[in-house]
Design a binder for these strands. Sequence first.
DNA 1: TCTTATTGTGATTATCCGAGTGAACGGCTG
DNA 2: CAGCCGTTCACTCGGATAATCACAATAAGA
Lengths: 263, 263
Amino acid sequence: MTRNDSDDPRSTAVDQLEAFGLSTYAARTFVALASLGEGTAKDVSALAEVPRTRVYDATAELREYGLVDVQQSTPKRFTAVSAETTGRRFRREYTRRADLLTNALDEIEPASPNAEQRGVWTVTGREMVSDRVVEFVGGASEEVVLVTLETLLTDDVLAAVRAAIDRGVTVRVSGMDFSATEGDIDRLPDGCGFESSRAWSGVPAGRLLMVDRRRTLASVLVDGDGEHPPDARDETAIWGAGENNSLVVVLKAMFAWLNGGRE
Amino acid sequence: MTRNDSDDPRSTAVDQLEAFGLSTYAARTFVALASLGEGTAKDVSALAEVPRTRVYDATAELREYGLVDVQQSTPKRFTAVSAETTGRRFRREYTRRADLLTNALDEIEPASPNAEQRGVWTVTGREMVSDRVVEFVGGASEEVVLVTLETLLTDDVLAAVRAAIDRGVTVRVSGMDFSATEGDIDRLPDGCGFESSRAWSGVPAGRLLMVDRRRTLASVLVDGDGEHPPDARDETAIWGAGENNSLVVVLKAMFAWLNGGRE
DNA sequence: TCTTATTGTGATTATCCGAGTGAACGGCTG
DNA sequence: CAGCCGTTCACTCGGATAATCACAATAAGA
């Protein structure tokens, strides 16, 4: 079983093509044609483990996607487009799909300012938590307070923070780990006067966020509940919204306390 | 049956979510939550036509994608992330997938310069033909000659042409219809000395392309074989590669002829 | 405390789609 | 003319998912 390993380019190509909606025959046929450059149904069948009689369906499907061209002769000959063209093709289609989805959802979302909720919501996964941070910072109109590990200050988050600052929002960002504060805060435009670190030494590492004193989020890293890469699903967060939300009240008090009684 | 029309935002949202790999239950559940903002399994079931007992699976699936947050109470409450976050989520994932695919295919493609093929290949669909044009122009090392309708000079093609010019390739572009030549050729940096039009008045409208005198493409618009929008699948092209390829020979002669016997 | 309605979880069945296989048709070649 | 190869079509099988049901757990009310 040395064939078909996980990091074999052929396998990954087939997987991705299937994710983009192709049938397995079509996907296998395409990578075979990409390897051959050009070939007949017999060639493809031999290399791709696709039944000869089905190569025609597969190439027809690929032709619809514009990934394969056909030579009308006997035997028919097929050729695959270049890797760049393939990538461009799907990139276009799926960014278009994402735009469609965003617009459709925008029309659906309730116009009402979504009466502030009570209770505490949970999120799992580093990327997912980052998404919430970006979303909440993006919705800030007055004030953002963010305390975070340097590792978690991804480009997404930084972009959202910069956008908020440009929008005229008062933003204060602080690192939780000591080494961090120097490295990355530079990447932010001024207006981040928090006293860097030290105060957070006893707090479990993660993030704390407060937006307009009406929406807060707290997360911790749970490093490794058995997941393979210690990078994927290792952050869990809770968040809440609304003036009287319990989590909001607690974190609001906490920030005020650590900020030296101001407010 | 006035519900669930084709351009209903809800339907399009569900369709796109399914295209992104979600189950139909998950997709319907998500749009229901997007409408409600927040709700219980019962609420979702009533609005989304999803069996109540399956809402829990659907929300679990959505939670994996980071699209839904859960409130651990009885009854459980669910909430959907914003439209922008949803779009960002899928945009990221699928551009990443496209990159993976491109890289994998790059490793697969035969290192050999792909001994020039004989025979004539066919492509169908306007976008697909544009992709071939971009691919061929992108592979040009010396000379590009392109005659095209103005309508078909999309941004993709223009970008490829500009890249070729910057690369030091001799490029000549000409419009087939009279009105065109003025409007768009301006968008190209010089080096396009073709005598604009007139010579092509009798030729069926479409495109003609020659790259390095070794690769040619010819297309025509077949306007309307029953397709709904007169815009999608209405162009068919043939192309060939190799010094002795019949199509290459013919088009090479044709270009030389129309260019006044030069070469 | 007991009852009852409602919520959450799991197992079961039905339905659909696609992979895989084989047979039939037609054109090319010896 | 006959056999062979290429091509297409029709069919079966299996896996996945939609849909239904049965049951356990919880909360509200008498």
